[in-house]
Simulated assay, not measured.
Amino acid sequence: MLTGLTFRLATPEDLPEIISMLADDKLGAAREKKGLSVKYLQAFEKIQQDPNQELTIAELNGDKVATFQLTFIQYLTYEGGLRAQVEAVRTHSAYRGQGIGTRVFEYAINRAIEKGCHLIQLTSDKKRPDAIRFYEKLGFRCTHEGMKLKLS
């Protein structure tokens, strides 16, 4: 049981640890920059000002152990439905394998329900087979074929 695990919205003071978690694997290390750049600060400011964005920190007994971002997307289909997109999910490498990821998703799913979403979705790089298996274990299914076009 993970007693002491709490969730809260991130603050600017959390950014160095969030960036560190994002960069703490092979794929993240190739795309993230170490340190707190102006671009990270500008992005955080935009996220913080947007009521449809939540950048969340999970803490265990005061240690920052996980992070994720929820985006609430309003659209016309499903009779004007609302969906949640979960991205940038990371558990600190020192805390993996302890059930924190499961608790993170329980929290994210409950937030989506509270906001009135009918669906929660995510993408995962195909180079992360362990993450994909984890998401499938939680009940996520590959129901659509995702496509991306890299612009820069």
Rank of each mutant, 00 (worst) to 15 (best):
residue 65 V to N: 06
residue 129 P to C: 13
residue 53 Q to W: 02
residue 51 P to V: 00
residue 104 V to L: 03
residue 59 E to M: 09
residue 96 R to T: 05
residue 115 K to Q: 15
residue 79 E to C: 10
residue 101 G to S: 01
residue 120 I to H: 03
residue 97 G to Y: 03
residue 75 Y to V: 00
residue 53 Q to A: 02
residue 74 Q to Y: 04
residue 85 Q to A: 11
residue 56 T to V: 13
residue 85 Q to D: 14
residue 57 I to E: 03
residue 151 L to K: 06
residue 53 Q to C: 08
residue 100 I to L: 11
residue 62 G to A: 10
residue 74 Q to K: 07
residue 84 A to N: 08
residue 89 V to Y: 02
residue 121 Q to R: 04
residue 122 L to R: 05
residue 83 R to L: 15
residue 124 S to H: 10
residue 89 V to G: 04
residue 112 A to T: 06
residue 88 A to G: 14
residue 95 Y to G: 13
residue 94 A to V: 00
residue 52 N to R: 07
residue 69 Q to F: 01
residue 78 Y to C: 15
residue 94 A to M: 02
residue 109 I to D: 06
residue 127 K to C: 12
residue 110 N to G: 12
residue 84 A to K: 01
residue 108 A to P: 03
residue 55 L to Q: 01
residue 97 G to E: 08
residue 54 E to T: 02
residue 63 D to A: 06
residue 52 N to F: 05
residue 149 L to I: 08
residue 150 K to L: 13
residue 66 A to D: 02
residue 54 E to H: 03
residue 93 S to Y: 07
residue 113 I to V: 15
residue 100 I to V: 11
residue 87 E to W: 08
residue 143 T to D: 14
residue 93 S to P: 13
residue 69 Q to L: 01
residue 62 G to V: 09
residue 65 V to C: 06
residue 123 T to M: 13
residue 70 L to T: 00
residue 60 L to A: 12
residue 71 T to K: 03
residue 80 G to F: 09
residue 150 K to R: 11
residue 65 V to D: 11
residue 75 Y to L: 03
residue 137 K to D: 01
residue 102 T to Q: 08
residue 133 R to I: 09
residue 150 K to T: 13
residue 65 V to Q: 07
residue 55 L to R: 00
residue 151 L to V: 15
residue 79 E to S: 14
residue 90 R to L: 04
residue 82 L to Y: 03
residue 99 G to S: 11
residue 96 R to A: 05
residue 119 L to R: 12
residue 142 C to Q: 09
residue 65 V to T: 08
residue 80 G to M: 02
residue 54 E to Q: 14
residue 122 L to G: 06
residue 77 T to G: 09
residue 72 F to M: 04
residue 103 R to N: 05
residue 116 G to E: 07
residue 72 F to C: 00
residue 107 Y to C: 05
residue 117 C to Q: 05
residue 82 L to S: 06
residue 150 K to M: 13
residue 128 R to N: 15
residue 88 A to V: 01
residue 111 R to D: 12
residue 115 K to G: 10
residue 63 D to C: 09
residue 99 G to K: 12
residue 73 I to M: 06
residue 78 Y to D: 14
residue 112 A to M: 07
residue 100 I to M: 09
residue 108 A to T: 02
residue 67 T to G: 01
residue 75 Y to N: 12
residue 146 G to L: 02
residue 104 V to G: 03
residue 139 G to V: 11
residue 141 R to I: 15
residue 55 L to G: 00
residue 138 L to N: 04
residue 88 A to K: 02
residue 123 T to Q: 12
residue 111 R to Y: 08
residue 141 R to D: 14
residue 146 G to Q: 06
residue 105 F to R: 00
residue 56 T to Y: 00
residue 89 V to N: 05
residue 150 K to S: 14
residue 109 I to L: 14
residue 113 I to W: 11
residue 57 I to S: 01
residue 69 Q to Y: 00
residue 95 Y to E: 07
residue 96 R to Q: 13
residue 148 K to C: 10
residue 74 Q to V: 02
residue 54 E to G: 00
residue 105 F to Y: 04
residue 105 F to C: 00
residue 110 N to R: 09
residue 116 G to W: 13
residue 68 F to E: 01
residue 87 E to Y: 03
residue 141 R to P: 12
residue 117 C to R: 05
residue 64 K to R: 04
residue 84 A to W: 00
residue 134 F to N: 08
residue 73 I to H: 06
residue 150 K to A: 11
